[in-house]
Design a protein around this nucleic acid. Structure first.
Lengths: 169, 169
DNA sequence: AAAAATTACTTTAAGCTTAAAATAAATTCG
DNA sequence: CGAATTTATTTTAAGCTTAAAGTAATTTTT
């Protein structure tokens, strides 16, 4: 409510900001650290164990959920990456035999992309192991803590989306 | 041949996994979505508003906390990025006049890097605004929710670190 | 002190990523 | 219908990122 006097952390030596938004900043840095840490570990294991990159794995994960294939635009939205990024990613996965691309029959601009049989097999065997890694990485959280974290992240996501409205999106 | 033994639900996805680690997977995906979403927005605003990239901003943020400078290795550890990555990043920031690098007087392998006056001024003006963006992005969370999230993320971080021990780190 | 190991950093090659501009097909509108 | 707009994708240029290999300085070991 009313602004309390701000307790100056002993180790913090920066200038006092007009409003004390330090807490949100610390929260953001912790969230980022968490996801960077885990993402890095997953990336490392995917490379060491399967010689695959995370972006490729993610792309295959999306396609595994859509047996009939998806367009590049759909993929782009789901993966939250740019269209141009996807072009190269798909190119490489087609070359390696994991993906198949075909011009859509209803729209000659669009392409349907989907996993080949080999791609699907390989993905599923990776996914099974991947799921175990994640379970282990989050293993110290109780069922309740997982549930709470899930809820708080959902709320954070909504808050962020709300804040983005009007600005540019 | 024998690979049709599994009854495939028409619209639902894949095979039932040996152990149900779906929840952890969903939790991880939500965490990742959250940080990707926010990171993307910050990246966009830094570019639009200040014509600076997030990695450069992050690097300057580290140096702002160390007025006497840091070595590349210190930066590398703190930022959780590779040494090689830092070399290029620092190069560009030196060229643009934001950073100063000097060979350490006590160790001729090492370099001390620090913000120039101009770099510091520019960073601080960006940081003030940046802090407001973060506060807004997390704005829908109550004080208690922020505290809870902070705690759960700390626990997640520790859990992940524990899981990494032995594997490669 | 010489050899071995470690540490700090750079270089390289490959891939990821984006924004912006370009191309082409489809849709909307006058 | 034909022009203008939107949508789907590719290309380009620049920068980020990593792992692995290389160089050089320091520290440890023998």
């Amino acid at each position: 409510m009313d602004d309390q006097t701000i307790p100056l952390d002993a180790e913090t030596k920066a200038v006092e900001m007009p409003e004390h938004h330090r807490d949100e900043l610390r929260l953001w840095l912790r969230l980022l650290t968490c996801s960077t840490l885990i993402e890095g570990e997953i990336r490392r294991r995917l490379r060491d164990r399967f010689d695959v990159t995370l972006p490729r794995f993610d792309l295959m994960a999306q396609l595994d959920k859509a047996p009939d294939g998806m367009t590049l635009s759909d993929l782009s939205k789901r993966m939250m990456v740019s269209n141009g990024n996807l072009t190269g990613l798909v190119d490489r996965l087609v070359t390696s035999g994991h993906l198949e691309r075909r011009v859509s029959e209803t729209d000659r601009r669009a392409q349907m992309v989907r996993l080949t049989k080999a791609g699907q097999d390989e993905f599923r065997s990776m996914a099974a192991e991947h799921e175990g890694w994640i379970a282990d990485l989050f293993g110290d959280l109780t069922q309740k803590e997982q549930k709470d974290l899930m809820r708080l992240l959902a709320k954070t996501k909504n808050s962020a989306r709300r804040a983005m409205m009007g600005g540019s999106q």
